[in-house]
Design a protein around this nucleic acid. Structure first.
Lengths: 193, 193, 193, 193
DNA sequence: TATGAATGAGTCTTCATTCAT
DNA sequence: GATGAATGAAGACTCATTCAT
């Protein structure tokens, strides 16, 4: 059963999702959230003890939303390939629908001027180009297959890299010996199947 | 030649790196940066027109540092495999050395209580478990090779996924048809080589 | 006859006495009073039109309690001496039983740190020491009788002084010529009898 | 030497003295203090870390002012009698000059309506009348001397009483046996000399 | 009669930025 | 060139009071 209280909480969280999504935690104000929710400022405090708590509950709500969807999307598929495709598509759709929210919430874009975004874009391209160059060279020397989509390959490398690096740091027990590094690279090279 | 002015700028940026790294953009104050740099608050404004500009220049400095190193590390290797290993190791080393800075700068750790971190950790595990389940099922059914390191495989999937999804959104020209999705998944499955 | 309404009013006043006694007027909230009384917040407004009125009625209730007791205690004694002793003892007992309430209600203890209380205590000692020094010097020179309890004498001087000074200010008709000052001091020196 | 900083601090304290004197701690706002001092609101925080600290420093300043004056006034007199008269006069003068400040700071007059003040005044009279009645009865029966100023006598009793009672409570080591009560009453009756 | 829910008005406090020296 | 001092603008949070039920 959905309580009256629970319903109002959801309303506030959804307003927060919009406001913090557009403005980030520090730029989004409680006043804006209240206005967005169509309620008084103090009312929020009847449901969330502080801005921090509201933000956290909002994140949980947001992430749980993602998980449920991702789970459902993959569950009904049978092969690994179709599962991965489903997951990829779901992910893209989700990211697309929440593009603004994510962009602002993840990045520090609020305090980054247009001029600067350009600069950063170039940098990102440069980072990417390192992977891209490796891929191109590899195709050239025959180490990599010639039908490879270079851009996607580069993206996979970078994404996988970051994902693994981060995990290495925050989950130290996964170990940090070179064997894992080779394992990682080998999977990338030979594929999962 | 390094000008006097340039030298001072670097000092400030390095102080900013420390302060914003520890506290994030909004929590880090100009006063702290000044104190860290051992200069007066107003002096910063002689070198950077605003907090925003300082932060941006700091990011550029930070990222360029990464790029230079990444470039050097891969350049001297010959095969794709050794290049990728070098890049992976460099990346891990870099992330490790800047772990604190990155963690604070990237995440919203300031306004996230310990209690909440735990909650989020569980969620992250859940997200990961979706990929993990797919991998496990795949090994079981023989679709994936049995010698696969499940955790690393899951991490690769998630990282690659995010990287590609994000790119899809922000670089629309890369197209958004299912062909690419299949391409992406196929590369993951069959590997780069 | 005690009406139902009157009974409820008393309950609220007693709750207010506790809450405002512990927290002072501004720190004590209507919400706390309501909780203490075991009723809803809005209910208080059925009996008292505002926080101010509640506070005032509470004071009246408190003071009347004192007066009744003080009256009873002195009434049944016969000599001035025994009356004064009875009054003194009653006063001490009353103050003692309400020590906490009085202390908080009178002082600004809320916004006074422990560190500061110490400072203030020293000051109070200093004030006291002025009277004390006079007493000691007087005993030394023989102006005051040698069997005098110095501390009590000093306290009497200070209390009487404040009481009279305050009255001078707020009851101007009592006059403000030096004759009264002499009169006052003479009573202190020669006693009432 | 009076530093620039010290001078500004005094200015703020004096403004606070006026504002808090007129309005009490909770009613007086930092904005008012700033306006009174002719400075910006934030400037206060350059000198005092919080409203609380400002208030405390203000109290210290206020009390020290009193003490210095009281000390000076009594020091230059020779006999106990003249010392007491000097102290009394100083006290009256001080209270008179700070009447408003004291009245507001001590009492809770801000949240007490005119109507209520009347009520309280009557109560005070009643309290006083208890002492007054004892005095009158005493004069009648010959226990007290007939030339006694009844009002001043009553004030002395009440003031001394409160002073001693309070001390009993907060300075427990002074003991709480009846001997002291008698001692106290005897001093009142027989005088200090 | 009793009250939970809602809220606007009000206040402390922070901080990027300016400017006189 | 360097800076301490000053500050306006902004935002989180509180609470007495109201009102629909």
């Amino acid at each position: 059963m959905v309580t009256q209280r629970g319903k109002r909480q959801i309303e506030i969280i959804e307003a927060a999702l919009k406001v913090f999504g557009e403005n980030g935690f520090f730029q989004g104000t409680m006043e804006e959230v209240a206005k967005e929710a169509g309620i008084g400022k103090a009312t929020i405090y009847e449901y969330f003890s502080s801005k921090k708590e509201l933000f956290q509950e909002m994140l949980v709500y947001f992430v749980e939303d993602y998980i449920t969807g991702a789970h459902d999307a993959t569950e009904k598929e049978n092969t690994v390939r179709s599962k991965l495709i489903a997951l990829t598509e779901y992910n893209i759709a989700f990211v697309k629908s929440k593009a603004d929210t994510l962009q602002r919430m993840t990045s520090r874009s609020e305090h980054v001027s247009e001029d600067f975004k350009c600069k950063i874009f170039n940098i990102k391209q440069t980072v990417c180009s390192i992977a891209l160059k490796i891929v191109e060279k590899g195709i050239e020397t025959g180490e990599l297959r010639s039908d490879l989509d270079k851009n996607i390959a580069a993206l996979i490398i970078i994404g996988a890299l970051n994902s693994v690096s981060t995990e290495y740091i925050f989950n130290e027990e996964i170990a940090s010996n070179t064997i894992n590094t080779s394992t990682f690279v080998d999977i990338l090279l030979s594929g999962l199947s």
